[in-house]
Design a protein around this nucleic acid. Sequence first.
DNA 1: ACCTGAACACCGTTCAAGT
DNA 2: ACCTGAACACCGTTCAAGT
Lengths: 222, 222
Amino acid sequence: MVKQSISAEQIITAAFEILQASGTVDALSIRKIANQLDIGAATFYWHFENKQTLLQAMADNIIQQIEIEPCNTTLEWTDQIRQIFSAIYTTYIAQPYAAELMMRTVPATKARLGLINHLIQILLDAGFTPEQASLAIESIDHFMSGLFTDITGELEMKHRVSQHKDTYLAQLPLKMQQIATDNHYNAFLRTFEHHRHQQQRSLEKFMLGIDIFLAGLQQQLA
Amino acid sequence: MVKQSISAEQIITAAFEILQASGTVDALSIRKIANQLDIGAATFYWHFENKQTLLQAMADNIIQQIEIEPCNTTLEWTDQIRQIFSAIYTTYIAQPYAAELMMRTVPATKARLGLINHLIQILLDAGFTPEQASLAIESIDHFMSGLFTDITGELEMKHRVSQHKDTYLAQLPLKMQQIATDNHYNAFLRTFEHHRHQQQRSLEKFMLGIDIFLAGLQQQLA
DNA sequence: ACCTGAACACCGTTCAAGT
DNA sequence: ACCTGAACACCGTTCAAGT
């Protein structure tokens, strides 16, 4: 019996659903996608060259979701940058695997290159050299990537612990505290408690990091 | 026939050798390690609880390699931070999988917590609050993690292309240039050429990023 | 044009069994 | 105490064969 035609879009949608449930790109497999769509795993390869091309398509899909407001030239360049990264953050945090997707793919699409171009243009207009502009945007991107890897990792850890599959991971925070106490790592301990209590409102934390970086950049212009 | 006892250290050493050759943590498998040591794959599990614990041990091993100079209190706090991250960078860049190892593990060892404690202490002494200090160190760490993921990714890409296994990856930079040209992404194009020509001397690039961040932090103190 | 089952070469991990 | 082979439940990918 022949199935109704499956489209590439359907595969992407199914992949997003699985990713939303599992949380990590590693847990996304062609076999799971095929299962979800009730097709054979081999069918995937008629629609996509390989897993990597699927990831490319998914990454582009996410970038297209970002709502960039029309270029407001009355705004300070710092606020323009802030606005865009705030929008990126909001999109990424809604699907925490987004950053991992970006890191595992190459920005070889119109949407992704357009976003990079836009950011660099803002810095060029502000008076930075192309080298400075490129370095600055890359640096903020790296910062964001690292932050999200951290967030995703912590989410995954909590996920695994709550499924009580992993008792080893569950006792690691306690072990950290134990080691820190034994060695009188007081500076660490003072921030550790704080870190475990706050949790949420990470957008503010993210924007604080961005602000520090932007303040440093502004110094560079003077 | 019974083999001579294999030690945990031998497993770690073999794992590092494989990682040095392959470049990515994903390409490190228990079977490859076992093969290298001429033991059965199951033997691994007598010495380590699982793959994760091996990674934990390897990550700690790398941090212990970092040469931290004795705390020089005559130095500015900015220079103390610079010195340490420069040392970390040097250690990481010699084994580009190092950063990935850190991101995939939890700092639940004396060496790793000691390093974090040391960094936070410097900022506390400089007059920052515990929250500020913790956020600042985390941010620099995220920046470094993102940077190294980028470096490792690019290395792996070149590696795969040079083995001409992956013709798809090989033409991506050209595709990027094509898209950018078609859409008049001139700001991007101006930095793209530059980016592809320079290559090396990434330590300076890294330190430039750190410097911008430190300049922003200094502003926060005033 | 679109889909399949079977196969290939891999994973991490477990476990009864060996010495 | 230390190691083994065989098995389990997974991967990504290929390919001849079907409709």
